[in-house]
Design a protein around this nucleic acid. Sequence first.
RNA 1: GCCCCCGUAGCUCAGUGGAUAGAGCAUCCCCCUCCUAAGGGGAGGGUCACACGUUCGAUUCGUGUCGGGGGCACCA
Length: 601
Amino acid sequence: MTHSQDPKSHLIALFQHAAGQFVQAEHLSIDLERPKQASHGDFACNVAMQLAKALKRNPREVAQAIVASLPASDLVEKTEIAGPGFINVFLKPAAWQNVALRVLKAGAQYGQVDLGKGEKIQIEFVSANPTGPLHVGHGRGAAFGASLANVLTLAGYQVQREYYVNDAGRQMDILALSTWLRYLTLGNQFVPFPANAYQGDYVSAMADSIYALHGERYMRPAAEVGANAPDAVSDPDGHLDALIANAKRLLGADYAYVHGHALEEQLGDGRNDLTEFGVLFDTWFSEKTLHESGLIDKAVKQLQQQGHIYEQNGALWFRSTAFGDEKDRVVLRENGIYTYFAADIAYHLNKFERGFERVIDVWGADHHGYISRVKGALTAAGADAERMIVTLVQFAVLYRNGQKASMSTRSGQYVTLRDLRAEVGNDAARFFYVLRKSDQHLDFDLDLAKSQSNENPVYYIQYAHARICSVLSAWGGSEADLLDANSARLEQPQELTLLRRIAEFPETVDAAARDLAPHSIAYYLKDLAAELHGLYAACQFLVEDEELKLARLSLIAATRQVIRTGLALLGVSAPERMSREDGGSVEDQPEKTGAAQENIA
RNA sequence: GCCCCCGUAGCUCAGUGGAUAGAGCAUCCCCCUCCUAAGGGGAGGGUCACACGUUCGAUUCGUGUCGGGGGCACCA
């Protein structure tokens, strides 16, 4: 048997053939792992232990039989049976040596796997209310979702990135009201500003701009704005709702302008922020269109016809307890307005109608109680809720000088994503955000993210890339010249280690896509960079021996390609040159990530 | 009360049911005449919270206990 592609799939085929004597191939999935210890070979197979019980034979005996019938291969150096029944496979150096050339030929395509098989998949993320600047929590969802989308794309999925715009709810009314109240003060119409309205400076800024554009046009007497409103202290929500109702009545058709202005400003601000962060969306889906197109009516009626809806206290309730929820939920409020939940049912039914095999929702961890009711409603409506996958992203807590730096109060006093990006740079922010499993709390160390030192994993990886660029530029040749390199000259232990690591990249992409775990890309890159630095310290690249030089250069050029692809998956730039600043200036610090993102999309 | 996440080295964390559990930082010791030292090499450091179970094998899966964090709206 000869090897067509990578060593692993080659070996799997060999084992499948050999194990065929015991079990039919379709019932067998061969599992090859990379042993932690080099003395256990390049790959270890546990199939003998798995078969031993069914066969009622000693696992080592089974291993013997399998080894005996392994087809001959020009990649395999030797096999060993070890421990309880592992079959350890040692490969000839040639098995790894050609990896570098494969990478150079494939270029940015290297790492592509066919896990998705072109399946249409949607990932919805961020979806923050456009009621104010994005904060550091949204940033994590953004970095995670964007990286995951990139990973899934490389893994063969047809990915659509979507942002759900909550442009229809009460929160938007509160923002419109808040803006208008600030505007009124510019005409000396003072209405006490409610504590539960939006307090941030950006609200006053919007009021200023409306005043600058339209002067007194939206001015109304302060006395009428607060008319008949319940007490702000004893009934803050009722107070706010009354003010909103008064605003709509007093402004009439002009209310839509104030509301629309606030929406566009905040949505535009968020979009710019995300774009600068290298986070791009294919679709911005408006909640308002769900109301206007009657999709929510349709969804609720559908549930109603199937007997999952009942009326109580003037509201319509969905019987979600029948689907595992702890409590039934309101879909149509007493005041005749649909809840966010109702919109979300229609929204998810609509996602499925748009032809996605699966939809991934990236939600903040505080929404976890929400999963069962949405899935329940989808099931009730006859959809397959299994196709909806919710990934919860836990909160990020910022630390500065060992102290918590994030204050999440409702008064607008939180650290924004823009502040964070300005402080640590896009690259560090993107990298640090995905350095932890998404479902785990993240301690974001601002000092570490900013430090231009070896402690900082972002620079460690980027520096590996820059070092390679520096060597290749000192050499001065073109990458095309490296395609003829004699890879058999790569024999040093550090060279073989690096070759193995590069060969592992497609498997890493596959696993990251399978587990929806972009953080494993970050860890892979740290390992890859470490091995590159190890090689750099051990071997000279620009040596006299022309053949050896080209072989080594082909290896580091391949490494550079994998680092580029990997960093692009995470939305982190791969600078060709890095220089350290003494005074802590960030002048030469790489910041742009947009280009990196586009390599993948 | 119910639900979710977590508990691995002094710290922050990796670890598809496999063999002697890893990395970075911190501590200690070494290495620039050489393609960027933002680098490399080495040492010490562990009851994988605890108990029971599942099995050839458990840090990994299940149950329970203890400890930490978060969530339970006619808000979105």
